[in-house]
């Protein structure tokens, strides 16, 4: 097995207007089988993917927002959300659903997966990757 690489999935689109958000999530779930060091970035309209209270009954599209909460089971535990992107859209962390994972190295304690970072920190995270996949 080759050495573990750092993969960042960059999400910059709102969930239902285009297929990007769902495609990204599916690639993340499939890619999780390769056991790499995976992080997800949510910035610009991508932060809308994580909002609470989505209900797609009226638009005939599957509501995939609950699936983000399964990411912990797939050992995807780092969801970076950009503060400035939230601010620009009048959102706070409270407007996002809680996503948690159980930390294997800490007696399976439940911990939040969402980490709010500044734009400068997001730039550092991006610059620290081996592979960046954009959606």
């Amino acid at each position: 097995m080759s050495e573990i690489k750092k993969f960042l999935y960059v999400n910059r689109k709102a969930p239902y207007g285009t297929i990007y958000a769902l495609e990204s999530l599916e690639v993340v779930l499939i890619g999780a089988a390769f056991e790499q060091d995976v992080s997800l970035a949510f910035l610009d309209d991508g932060v809308f993917q994580l909002t609470k209270g989505q209900n797609t009954d009226g638009i005939g599209i599957k509501n995939f927002s609950p699936t983000y909460r399964a990411l912990g089971d797939y050992e995807v535990t780092k969801l970076y959300v950009e503060q400035e992107s939230l601010d620009e859209r009048g959102l706070t962390l409270d407007d996002l659903q809680a996503v948690v994972y159980e930390d294997e190295d800490d007696d399976w304690e439940e911990k939040p997966s969402i980490r709010v970072v500044s734009r400068a920190e997001m730039a550092d995270i991006m610059a620290d990757q081996d592979v960046v996949l954009s959606f």
Partner: peptide, 17 residues
């Protein structure tokens, strides 16, 4: 060709879609 060189000369490529 210059595009390819740019990709090869950097550590990673990031697309802003």
């Amino acid at each position: 060709d210059g595009f390819v060189d740019l990709v090869a000369d950097h550590d990673r490529t990031q697309s802003w879609l």
